[in-house]
Simulated assay, not measured.
Amino acid sequence: MTIARHSAMNRGCARLLITGGVGFLGTNLIMEISKSYRAGDIVCLDSLESATANLPCLLGKAELIISPICEIGSYSHFIGPETIVIHLAASGGVVDSVKDPISNFKSNVQSTLNILEVMKSKGATKVIFASTGGALMGDSSPPVSEASLPRPISPYGASKLSCEAYLNAYCASYGFKAIMLRFGNVYGMHSAHKKGVINTWLREVTRNKEITIYGDGSETRDFINARDIVQGITQSLCLIEELQCGVSEVFHLANGEGVELGRLADLLFSSMSKKPSIQYAGNRIGEVRYNFADYSKAQKILGFKPVVALGDGIRELVRWSMIHDPFCN
């Protein structure tokens, strides 16, 4: 892996430019697609503000540009007409977005607009965007689908909906091709920096602390393993080549099952052979109570079908975390 810090480099344009590539999903994605792409065809753009532990996993698999998206001079020369941008970089916390919506807007909406403008100036038109399901849909009755009316109840959900709107606008105005993938609650390996519910509980149980459930335990989420999300992204790489200019598509990538948080806790406790106490607290502002998604459109058009069962995925994550998550060892 070559690391470049804001330096102009006389290289050809990237086949794939992946923003947030050192993050949780980016690392899983690069490790998989590097089996099919040469390292010189993959550029990983990351500010390294939230994740550095994954760097060793990417050695020899991609070229890394350390830069925020706003500093376009550090990466614009890697983008050409045939480049596909996989835009994963984002500030992903609902709770943090409620605390600081302006920062969330800049990290998500402004950065997306920045990279779309760079693409436009370089003649690049193909973009795959990491969106969200539950946060964007808000309290819509599950199962949600591409036909459901988005009603975000958090600044994070609103920021992702805004990004989708800009992508649609760039398709209509400038002939872009866009695929927007609305993820369920993603978990899996290479997530030592994540703050999601599974990672948080795992660390608390490891340290023999009680866990907190915000609600009464009946709240549901649609949990999907990172390996299944990577499957959906790679399938999208095939589809985006076939799309006509000016066309955008939206897909929900999920398991199609609403898992109660109480059941999730039981699965985690069983995998760790521990039974900590549970503290129940009030529902948090901005978080949906019940959510799961219908992924039938993705199955029909992309060939997407999740294969990692939740119990298996949690056991795999527990084993990985005991070795690689510094908060668990």
Rank of each mutant, 00 (worst) to 15 (best):
A4F: 13
M9S: 11
A14F: 07
L16E: 00
T19F: 06
G20T: 01
G21D: 09
E32N: 14
S36I: 10
Y37D: 03
R38V: 01
A39W: 00
C44Y: 01
D46R: 05
S47D: 13
E49R: 15
S50K: 14
T52N: 11
A53L: 14
L55H: 08
C57T: 00
I65V: 15
Y75I: 06
I86R: 01
A89L: 08
A89Q: 05
G92W: 04
V94Y: 05
S97A: 13
I102V: 13
S103R: 13
N104E: 10
F105K: 02
V109Y: 01
Q110I: 06
T112V: 08
L113M: 07
M119G: 06
T125S: 13
V127R: 01
T132N: 14
G134H: 04
S154Y: 11
L161N: 06
C163M: 12
Y166L: 15
L167W: 04
S173N: 12
F176M: 11
K177E: 09
K177L: 08
K177V: 07
F183Y: 15
Y187R: 02
K194N: 08
K195P: 03
G196D: 15
N199W: 02
L202G: 05
E204G: 00
N208Q: 15
K209W: 04
I213Q: 07
Y214V: 06
D216K: 14
D216R: 12
R221C: 06
A226Q: 04
D228Y: 02
V230L: 10
V230K: 04
S236N: 02
L239R: 10
L243H: 09
V247G: 03
V250M: 12
F251Y: 12
E260I: 00
E260Y: 02
G262I: 03
R263T: 12
L264A: 08
S270L: 02
S271H: 13
P276S: 11
I278W: 07
Q279E: 15
A281P: 05
G286Y: 03
Y295D: 03
F304Q: 00
L310V: 05
E316I: 13
L317E: 05
R319G: 06
M322D: 07
I323F: 06
H324Q: 10
F327M: 14
F327G: 02
